[in-house]
Design a protein around this nucleic acid. Structure first.
Lengths: 162, 162
DNA sequence: TATTGTTATACTCTATAACTATA
DNA sequence: TATAGTTATAGAGTATAACAATA
């Protein structure tokens, strides 16, 4: 919390930032954004070790838990538009992790290949470790209540209107 | 929380998503990311009413609180790289909201113009309303503790290493 | 008529490398 | 040698519009 109130023009020029006073550092919206970025960066670094990005890992887990689900539903669940799902699913299929089989004539049923299931297991282990660390850093919180509150914001028809 | 455990292949095809089971919906990292996106989208919509984006508003507030600060310090404080600060500051200067005056020969001192100060006040009012709403949606939390925890994650040298 | 998958496209945000001028 | 500002550029992520095939 770089919130020291040292006026500009002083002689302390040594530290990384110039000890700016930051009135937004206490805003929960801002902190949410920065914390999210930090957590995603850390997860990205861990998943990169197995050649995977956070989105891809999440899709693997979701398809693994819902074999036969269709592309559009996965996108809706993750808040990803149809058009943007195409290259994501194509990449996972090209890596041989996901099978696409037509069910409908217009819908594609998704399922994990054997390699996809193995990858999913590795992803889940990494994400579980990440999750444990995040929970540890949220020490002092009622994590159950926090989860519920974040869900309210995510599904938030409450936010956006005044 | 779309977490109902209704197996695929049922006849309930009416709701938006096909009632997928979502094992990642409970992950704090994932919730953090989705909640952050929702809050930022709401803030973006509100600020768009005065022709401003969240980053620009944040910079106005930061410069207003630290007149004479230099571009690089603002970037460091907000986690924005030097190279990416250039067009941001240029845009605010072009709008006549920020003045740049050389102090160093290599550094530029930033300050708000009269119009910039007026814009800053409007931004701060909007952000305060947004912040109040976020706090309301986090009902049941110890907001002070939550702020501290999020700051730990943001400044997190703890996260990223195993 | 609404939905699925798809293509093309554009805009924002972010990251890196390289350069100049200055401290 | 390190820092400030700058340019150019590349990669994600996200958004819209349009189209064909299907329900």
């Amino acid at each position: 919390m770089h919130n020291s109130i040292i006026p500009m023009g002083m002689d302390r020029l040594d530290p990384p930032d110039n000890r700016l006073h930051d009135p937004v550092a206490s805003h929960l919206g801002y902190l949410l954004r920065r914390a999210s970025a930090a957590v995603m960066a850390a997860l990205g670094a861990r998943l990169a070790a197995i050649g995977m990005r956070p989105v891809e890992g999440t899709i693997l887990i979701l398809v693994g838990a819902n074999p036969g689900c269709i592309q559009s539903d996965v996108g809706r669940m993750l808040g990803i538009k149809r058009a943007n799902m195409v290259p994501l699913i194509a990449a996972l299929a090209n890596k041989g992790l996901i099978d696409k089989s037509p069910v409908d004539g217009r819908s594609l049923a998704l399922s994990l290949t054997a390699a996809g299931e193995a990858a999913r297991a590795r992803v889940e282990a990494i994400m579980a470790a990440q999750e444990a660390q995040v929970e540890r850093m949220l020490a002092g919180q009622d994590v159950l209540l926090l989860r519920q509150a974040l869900c309210r914001i995510v599904d938030g028809d409450e936010i956006g209107a005044t």
